[in-house]
Amino acid sequence: MSDTEKAKVLVLTGDGINCEQETAQAFRMAGFGAEIRHLNDVIAERMRLEDLCRRYSVLALPGGFSFGDDLTSGKVLGLKLSHQLNWDLNVYASRGGLVLGICNGFQALIRMGLFGKEVSITSNVHGKFLDTWVKVTPRGSQCVWLKGLGSLDLPIRHGEGRIVIAPTRKSEVLGKMQRFGMDCLQYEGDPNGSDERLAGLCDLTGRIFGLMPHPEAYVRWTSHPEWTQQPGRASAPGQGLAVFENAYKEAINAK
């Protein structure tokens, strides 16, 4: 398939986003054509939601430190997306689009209210930035990005990964999330104090997905901290790749 025919991903960058290269690469390994574009160029081009729908199967917000996380993580990036692009991502999803927010991109999606107004994200409970590998388990079958996947080993690298739900409405909100399968990814351990050990969330359609761990950082086995225990598998792919492959299957079906 030529590049022009491939299902396409728009990977946004600029303003302190810094995982755009490896994120684009993971999508390419899964079969996509990935374009890394500067947010300012997309804004200057006045790309409308219709253009986004027509041109791209996936919108990806990679990890990074957008605007230095100076006014809490992902905040100003979320404001910039809301005010200067003004895309209704729920409409994008309903028309077959897929959205992925990883780490800082996930934080921005949360700030934009895509997982509800009662959800927020804040400093890890221990107050420190943490780079470590975690085990996460998908829950339910709502999230198309996690379809059919079992437990995954992935790295986390964040200082603000504690997902919190408004205490006054906690049980109600959690109940809704569980009912609709929005609480789609959980840590097996407790690396940051997240409510319900939440590592990732999806929207009601399961097509908008955000997570704190970095699936793009585990697309080859040699990224895993224990790979030298099994050097014979050194050429094997990593478990994170499956997330992108799921999206590819979904995008092809949607086409």
Binding site: N18, C19, Q21, F129, L130, D131, W133, A217, S223, P225
Partner: peptide, 22 residues
């Protein structure tokens, strides 16, 4: 662990080896 030692996706051998990660 307070430094991101894996961003850019190039990591092969990290500053620490870790058993039973996660």
């Amino acid at each position: 662990r307070q430094y991101d030692h894996e961003v850019q996706g190039t990591s092969v051998i990290k500053p620490l080896h870790t058993v039973n990660p996660g």
